[in-house]
């Protein structure tokens, strides 16, 4: 498990790359990653392309992320595998985040 951060679009997009399972073991790393966002970031993206699974702790982290980040900043979820997408949809996260 590792959480990596990237900046795209000239640091306007802050990307959190989840590598491995997004569960409670990754929580502190996830929150630490959020602290590394540039102030210039206009949108956040969580990249799940290297994530095979997330549990309810992962769902909680993403929902909490919405509370921690400025409401004016959009958050999107991308690179979701079918099994990840099913879990996101069962929690109805698609009602809060765009999922790709």
């Amino acid at each position: 498990m590792a959480i990596r951060v990237e900046n795209e679009d000239q640091e306007k997009t802050f990307v959190v790359v989840v590598e491995g399972r997004l569960d409670h073991h990754a929580s502190e790393a996830f929150f630490r990653a959020l602290e590394r966002a540039e102030e210039t970031a206009e949108s956040y993206v969580v990249d799940f392309s290297a994530c095979p699974y997330l549990d309810s702790a992962g769902l909680g982290m993403i929902l909490l992320m919405r509370d921690l980040v400025d409401p004016s900043i959009g958050i999107a979820l991308r690179g979701c595998r079918p099994e990840v997408r099913r879990i996101l949809e069962i929690a109805r996260l698609q009602e809060t985040f765009p999922i790709d």
Binding site: E28, S56, L59, G60, M61, L63, L64, A91
Partner: peptide, 17 residues
């Protein structure tokens, strides 16, 4: 039930944070 679990997890994650 799913919603409750997710909300509880979110609050727990807030505590962790």
């Amino acid at each position: 039930f799913v919603d409750l679990i997710v909300q509880t997890s979110k609050q727990s994650m807030a505590l962790v944070y």
